[in-house]
Nucleic acid binder design. Structure first.
Lengths: 154, 154
DNA sequence: TGCCAATCGGAACGAATCAGTCCGATTGGA
DNA sequence: TCCAATCGGACTGATTCGTTCCGATTGGCA
């Protein structure tokens, strides 16, 4: 029940990119230098985030990357899914794979998609713009789940 | 961003135990037979859940386990934390460990505890009693994050 | 128009964690 | 006092993750 290091790095890197949005075109090297993430790892992340459509990359001399969308419309869920793949707490969430021995008889399975949605919603409620705000924001440290839920967009 | 298999199994097993709460004293063998979880794994889970205080175990002949608390007061978060340890999305959530190279300069870190609380709240909002209800509960498949947030207890 | 430099994209290696299995220690009843 | 059944912890194998490296592609410049 934790974020992978790559996803963690991706959030930090996207946050850094958001602060330079529109001003300067970043590349994997500058992002690595600014965030402290090892260069090869930063390159890998840029690749994945570009494939997912969160970053726009231009190749060649003087190329680089920039946010494909405004920071407010990029959520933590987007970043996590871009790096780790779809958010699914259990394998029985998607109807395609049938690996669980219980399957139809399982009493828990019908509730899992709801739990999955709730967790994903918690991540979708936080945008890059939120992460770029002042760290000393009052109440941020004691953010309650209820208030987080209220911030879920439509 | 997924539950470990052990945590997944633990939820299924606790749900099975909840259905027999008060009626019959379960043990690792019967729980294994009922859920389809391999016996050694079920034993391991019983051990961890007992240590965490979610199950009460009695040893010796005719011994077994039973829920330590009513199903309504045992949440998914309790079970997950009993098996996987504390829920923390990133290592920088707890103030004790300082492994991140950014630390104080990190713009993202102050928000992470809030995100962590939101995700944990989503899991804390679901109790064992909820999982034992009828699977065909209306709307369960389309539970929205917003409605999940509203169900978060104080 | 050809060359060069800088970048992204994918593939391979090593390490760490996790899932699963087994055996010993403890306890209650006969 | 002995026996049987159970929980508790330690070990091994496999999978996944994180990191690193190299090749393919592209745009600028002479």
């Amino acid at each position: 029940m934790r974020l992978s290091s790559l996803a963690d790095y991706a959030v930090v890197m996207m946050s850094a990119a958001a602060r330079h949005c529109g001003l300067a075109k970043m590349n994997a090297t500058t992002l690595s230098a600014e965030t402290g993430i090892p260069l090869p790892t930063a390159q890998k992340l840029v690749s994945r985030l570009s494939t997912a459509g969160l970053l726009e990359s231009s190749r060649g001399t003087g190329g680089g990357v920039r946010l494909a969308r405004p920071p407010a419309s990029i959520s933590l869920a987007d970043i996590v899914e871009a790096v780790e793949g779809p958010i699914r707490m259990t394998t029985c969430v998607d109807a395609e794979r049938h690996e669980c021995a219980l399957e139809g008889a399982c009493q828990v399975r019908p509730h899992m998609s709801a739990v999955n949605g709730a967790v994903r919603g918690a991540l979708a409620a936080v945008s890059l713009a939120d992460l770029s705000r002042a760290p000393a924001q009052a109440g941020a440290q004691n953010w309650t789940p209820a208030s987080a839920g209220e911030q879920v967009p439509a």
